[in-house]
Design a protein around this nucleic acid. Sequence first.
DNA 1: AACTTATATTGACATTGTCAATATAGCGTA
DNA 2: TACGCTATATTGACAATGTCAATATAAGTT
Lengths: 205, 205
Amino acid sequence: MSTSKKMPSKTYHHGNLRQVLLEAAQTLTAEVGIDGFTLREVARRAGVSHAAPYNHFADKTALVEALAVHAFQELANALRIAVNKHATPLSALEEIGVAYVRFAYQHPNEFRFIFRNDLRPSAESATNQAGERAYAVLLETMKSAQSFLASKDIELLALTAWSTSHGLATLVVNGPRSDLTQNLEGVEYLARGVMQTLQEGLFKR
Amino acid sequence: MSTSKKMPSKTYHHGNLRQVLLEAAQTLTAEVGIDGFTLREVARRAGVSHAAPYNHFADKTALVEALAVHAFQELANALRIAVNKHATPLSALEEIGVAYVRFAYQHPNEFRFIFRNDLRPSAESATNQAGERAYAVLLETMKSAQSFLASKDIELLALTAWSTSHGLATLVVNGPRSDLTQNLEGVEYLARGVMQTLQEGLFKR
DNA sequence: AACTTATATTGACATTGTCAATATAGCGTA
DNA sequence: TACGCTATATTGACAATGTCAATATAAGTT
């Protein structure tokens, strides 16, 4: 909300349109959800003609991909913050999962954008790279907790934890509304319970 | 593929269009993926005019929802079969997760359809009801394994297991292609590892 | 000042979802 | 059997969208 109006800055023509477009896209998404999202409406809100965006994005998918990358970075930040808040690697591990689910709950459309599949595939896509960086946060934390863990296969443990968090997050975002998914407290309570279950395991020993 | 051509059966006009539309929609999805999916193209393939589908489905979303319900039933079947194949509740529990991920890998577009969010929300939607039925399979199995489990909170355990399977499934379907997600064996290997990790827990004791 | 290049606009095009008006076929009933 | 009713299908429109080509305009360079 700061980089839009004032300071034409280093860019040429109108202002720095690319940035304005991204911001307009974000507020539009917040208003109409991920489905009513339209390139032309983004342009309208940015106050430019319907074809102007094509100077900054190859097509609609490219715009969406830029949003997804941004959202992924925000997710990675949220995870990092969660880690740093917690002294022990064990509680950090739990908190990563909670933070993941919280992010999904608080930014449902960003979350959906990230995992939309009308993005370009390919391993080199910017989205996937951003994803790798978020995953790296989990992997690091897992490593630093190594001595407390049940297995040497850190990758497998990390994948399991990621799967669990991601699964719960999508259920919270897309699944049926239940009492517990109505407010943040409920969601965090749920996430904490699930993460603890994951840590202790399903089975009795 | 059986109910389409032969036997005009109990329905009136053309044939039983509704069924034909659903089948056309499925093969179209298989060909162009979930994005290039178009109502008019479905009608074209069914050999009817572009507005004919509106006699059987309120709108595009309704058609998609019908597909999602069907896919959800197939998923529930796959889970049930997995349960029945395994004698002990414990191995059944593991196999449910594997079956879930396998289904996603083998029917990626069906899977995407199920969890598309351009479906109608609301708890009474047919999709959600179908989902409840699939979830019930897991819940039952969980109950029958109760004496082996670490907690009395079956709901929480089930939610955790579902989250994990679902998360891994979406990662396999939408995530970046890795060596292990290229073929069915790799996917099953991964799923089994993740489910076992979930059962034993992340932490040493 | 003239030229080049980056950026924006205009106007088109095919395609899509949807609706209203119209046609047609199958059914029960007189 | 003929009639009419209702379910089903077609036709033709409409606004909206993503995208492209042609054109304009401003910025920066020489």
